[in-house]
Amino acid sequence: MDIKLDQILFQVLNFGVVFGAIVFLVYKPVIKVLDERAKKIHDADRAAEESLKEKDAIDELKKKEKVRAEKESAKMMEKAREQATELKKELTEKARAEIKLDKEKAMKSWELEKKGEHAAMRKEFVDAVYAVTEKVVGKAVDKKAHAGLIDKGLKELAQAM
């Protein structure tokens, strides 16, 4: 076994060169990249945790809002139902009153019309009776003198009809 100082020193130098190359060209850049990646992962983890917390808070808020909205909607529905019932009642009453009014008006108008028709018919009938009587009797009939008689005849006719 030859142990030679110059060869040992040469190998020390040789290792020194490799050490320099590996440290400056490989180790430091790789460690820098790994540190940056670890930092990025750490930051992303933290951001994800914060997002989760935020999401939980939003979920909680959403839940509360949903419950509140449901209560409010139930109240509104109840109120609307009450209003609708009231309105329905009001409208029905109003419609009934209107119908009653219209009916009364129609009845009045019908009564008036009926009376008018009766009067017209009566007049025509009276005229016809005069005409027939004049022809039967052979002389003119005095309307004022025979008014009682005519009215009696008419009543009897109306009863017979």
Binding site: D2, I3, K4, I8, Q11
Partner: peptide
């Protein structure tokens, strides 16, 4: 496989 190198590494 040379003792000189292993001695150098051991010394370092």
């Amino acid at each position: 496989a040379d003792l000189n190198m292993t001695i150098a590494l051991a010394l370092i």
